[in-house]
Computed example of a mutant assay.
Amino acid sequence: MDIKELTSPCGMGCFACGVYKDNITDEMAQSLAGMLGIEAKDVVPCDGCRSERGSIFLGTTGCPTKTCVESKGLHNCSECSEFPCENQMPVADQANIFPHNTKLYNLSRIKLNGLEAWAAEAGMIQQKYFKGKFAPGKGPYEGEDTIQSE
């Protein structure tokens, strides 16, 4: 697996994505089909954000972040002198479905520890995003609610 090739310009790990061609399950294809309003048999697994087709979620429009990174001759946004920019700004819209709010965290971890070290933790980061609980000031955690009154 080529970690560099399977890390999107915006800091998502294609290798840890449930719709990436090597990871997609029948259950994920069914879920994706329901979201897209198509038959599961018509779901085309993603080849990764850096592939010719790019992310399956962008359709034919292409990715402005990918275009920006490529035009600057960079691998990802963490290498940019303007990082972070508005392209990485978290937003609540569809945050329960897509891990887009992890981009800024992922890019910061890449910048801090390097691509390989981040790749080793990318699956855990995505798991915590979707399965973890949130406590103000604590970040994601696993298990029961640990908010204590003082």
Rank of each mutant, 00 (worst) to 15 (best):
I110H: 02
T65Y: 03
H100E: 09
L74K: 04
S51D: 03
F57G: 00
T65P: 07
F134C: 09
K4R: 13
F57K: 06
G48H: 05
E39Q: 08
G54Y: 03
A16Y: 00
K111M: 12
C49E: 03
I3F: 13
F130Q: 06
L107A: 13
D93Y: 15
G123P: 00
G34F: 00
Q148T: 05
P64R: 11
H75P: 01
H75T: 09
S8H: 07
D42I: 03
G54A: 03
G59H: 03
K133V: 10
L107W: 02
V69Y: 15
G11V: 05
E150I: 15
S81M: 10
I56F: 02
D2F: 06
A16K: 01
S108Y: 02
P136Y: 15
L104Y: 11
A122H: 01
Q94R: 13
D26R: 09
R50H: 09
A16W: 01
C63Y: 13
Y129T: 02
I38H: 03
Y141V: 06
T67W: 05
R50I: 03
F98P: 00
R109C: 14
L32N: 02
A95T: 04
T146L: 12
E52D: 15
L36C: 05
V69E: 11
M124T: 12
L58W: 09
C85V: 02
E79W: 04
G18V: 00
S78R: 05
G132P: 10
M35D: 08
N106Y: 00
V69G: 05
I56L: 10
D47H: 04
N106L: 05
N101T: 04
F83T: 10
C17N: 07
P140C: 03
S108E: 15
G143F: 12
L104E: 02
A40L: 05
I97K: 15
S8P: 09
K21F: 08
L112E: 15
G73H: 00
G62I: 08
R53S: 07
A29C: 13
G73F: 01
D145V: 06
E52T: 15
G73C: 02
K103H: 11
R109Q: 14
K66L: 13
Q148D: 13
K131V: 08
C46M: 01
L36D: 10
I110G: 02
E79A: 11
M35Q: 14
A33T: 06
L107V: 03
D93S: 08
G139M: 06
G18F: 00
F57R: 04
C49N: 07
